[in-house]
Computed example of a mutant assay.
Amino acid sequence: MRMHNAAADEHCGIAQAAVITGDWWNVLVLREIARGHVRFDALAAELGLSRKVLTERLGRLVASGVLRRSLYQRRPVRYEYLLTDSGLALLPLLVAMQDWGDRWVLGDGGITATAAQDGAEHARVHALAGTRLAAGLELPSGDGTDHPVVAPDAATTVLFTYPGTGVDWSDEPIPGAAGCTLENRLFRDAWPEFRRADVAVHGISSQLPYEQASFARTEAIPYPLLSDAQHRLAAALRLPTFRGAGRLHLKRLILVVDRERTVRHALFPVEDIPHAVEEALRLATTT
């Protein structure tokens, strides 16, 4: 079969991006590095790829400027493979690919902010139990600073993702999308109980920090609202998303994470919001 000549499309951004990401293994290598598997042996184990092929793919991605090598051991020499700014800019593409696959390949093509109990998204989220979040994973907040996703000074952190506050879903009603203001208010009202139990609460959406800050002021939200507009957390945990109102939104779920950044419990899908908030408190105080 005749191979396509990318040079003929030298002015086409799609063609040039495909040179880097169009290879099956390149995409999966980037997926695993986004998940925090940044060392060679971890990548080989996750991908089931031969050392020769993995070395070749990593070399190509470093040469293209998507990855950089960082020395972590001198004898013998060992490197971690980290995303550059160019590589981080690919995360929205990876999440969009996942969203497309969830909807059109693994799903029936419909748009929903929930999930079937026997679906791929349900299985993927519940498989997070026992997963350790990468050290140094931070997201921006409305106060102009980056916050650790897992609070370092709390015994447990409850992470709840939600589609977005102040979004008008009336033109495209999507099952499970509404209710984000209610959810935040319920966590706000239960905040004193979480604090007494040494449990941090972080709300996370794909909204921009200034949008979250405006909502937090209006509703007197006492805990941080973190922005995953760049989809770093979504890529790191392969979180389910849906497209609506012009952007990708995180589906509503709750993770209970211990001080060592290990996910202990996952609640998904979240359909009974008041019960889910109560359950999050119960699980966080019994972890």
Rank of each mutant, 00 (worst) to 15 (best):
R217P: 03
E260K: 14
W24K: 15
Y72C: 10
A276P: 03
L233R: 03
D23G: 05
P148Q: 05
L159Q: 12
R31F: 07
A7K: 14
A284I: 08
L71M: 09
R124M: 06
G136P: 11
R252C: 06
R282Q: 15
R243L: 15
R259W: 07
H37C: 13
A284S: 08
A34L: 06
L233I: 07
Y79I: 03
F194V: 12
D108Q: 10
D168K: 00
S227R: 01
G136M: 12
A284E: 09
L182A: 10
G109T: 08
A284N: 11
L67Y: 00
P274N: 05
L93R: 15
Q73G: 13
A113Q: 01
M1G: 15
L54Y: 02
H231G: 06
V95Q: 02
F40I: 07
Y162N: 12
D9R: 13
D41R: 15
E56A: 15
G119W: 00
A113F: 02
A245C: 10
S214R: 12
G36S: 06
M3P: 14
A178S: 08
E183C: 06
D9W: 09
L128S: 11
P148F: 04
I204N: 00
R195N: 06
H265T: 14
S205F: 00
A116K: 09
S170Y: 00
L128W: 02
P222A: 09
T112M: 07
A280P: 04
N184C: 15
V257F: 01
R188S: 04
I111P: 05
I273L: 13
P163D: 00
S205Q: 00
P224D: 09
R124E: 09
V95N: 08
T84V: 11
P175N: 12
H249P: 00
P148E: 08
A276H: 00
E193L: 11
Y79R: 06
W24C: 14
K52W: 04
R57D: 05
R2E: 13
L30D: 01
G119F: 00
Y223P: 10
Q117Y: 05
E138Q: 15
K52P: 04
R217G: 13
Y79W: 04
L128Q: 04
R75F: 12
R261L: 05
L91Q: 10
K251C: 04
C180F: 04
L139A: 07
A229Q: 13
T156V: 15
T262K: 12
V95F: 06
F242P: 00
G176M: 05
Q98Y: 06
A116C: 10
W191T: 08
Q230L: 12
R252Y: 08
D168N: 10
E80A: 13
A235K: 01
R2W: 02
R188T: 14
L106I: 07
R78I: 00
L30P: 01
T262I: 11
L239C: 07
L47E: 04
Q207M: 02
D23C: 11
G101K: 09
L250I: 12
D228P: 08
E138M: 15
R2P: 14
A229T: 12
I20P: 09
R60P: 06
V62G: 01
I14Y: 15
Y81W: 04
L47C: 03
